[in-house]
């Protein structure tokens, strides 16, 4: 699974947090919560309680204010996930052009159910709601860059999984 990393914002991250806070009026630093959660998740892989507590402390808000937000928004993983989270659109328009087949194919190939992580810890398959790409479906995206893969076929999914396995970092 994930390499154990010390949960601490680096100097570089703290600098980014300062930049983000400048976008809001004085006293409204809490507005930085979503951007900072994204920053933290990109760095630490998922939003564990330790990560959320760190976010609370850098923004000077109560931990509960972070928990209630992180659990509301589907992009934040509050449970451990694989190295690559394949977020596949499962909504109507994509289903008209074969999204359900793609999800099934991924489940069979990785021997997991939607929502689970493959045994090697590399892939989590997550069915997500409309990604605003209905014209190029079926689609999936992979964080933290949220790169899009469009017009998916079983062949292109095979290729994608191979490419991801081959990546160094």
């Amino acid at each position: 699974m994930l390499a154990v990393k010390e949960i601490k914002f680096s100097e570089e991250m703290l600098k980014q947090v300062d930049e983000i806070i400048k976008r809001y009026p004085e006293g409204k630093e809490k507005s930085a919560l979503l951007p900072v959660l994204h920053l933290a998740q990109a760095e630490f892989g998922w939003c564990s309680t330790e990560v959320m507590d760190q976010v609370a402390s850098v923004l000077n808000i109560k931990p509960i204010e972070v928990y209630e937000v992180a659990t509301f928004y589907t992009m934040f993983h509050v449970k451990p996930v694989g190295k690559y989270v394949l977020e596949v659109c499962r909504t109507g328009p994509c289903c008209l052009v074969g999204a359900e087949k793609i999800i099934k194919y991924l489940e069979d190939k990785l021997e997991i159910k939607e929502g689970e992580t493959s045994a090697d810890g590399l892939f989590t398959v997550k069915g997500v709601e409309c990604l605003a790409a209905c014209g190029t479906g079926p689609v999936l995206q992979i964080g933290p860059e949220y790169t899009f893969y469009e017009h998916l076929t079983t062949d292109s999914v095979d290729q994608l999984l191979e490419d991801l396995k081959g990546r160094k970092q």
């Binding site: 976008r23 979503l34 959660l37 994204h38 937000v69 589907t74 992009m75 934040f76 997500v128 409309c130």
Partner: peptide, 12 residues
């Protein structure tokens, strides 16, 4: 005028 971009978190 300053314009800033704010990300959401995945919620319709």
């Amino acid at each position: 005028l300053e314009i800033y971009v704010q990300p959401g978190g995945g919620a319709y």
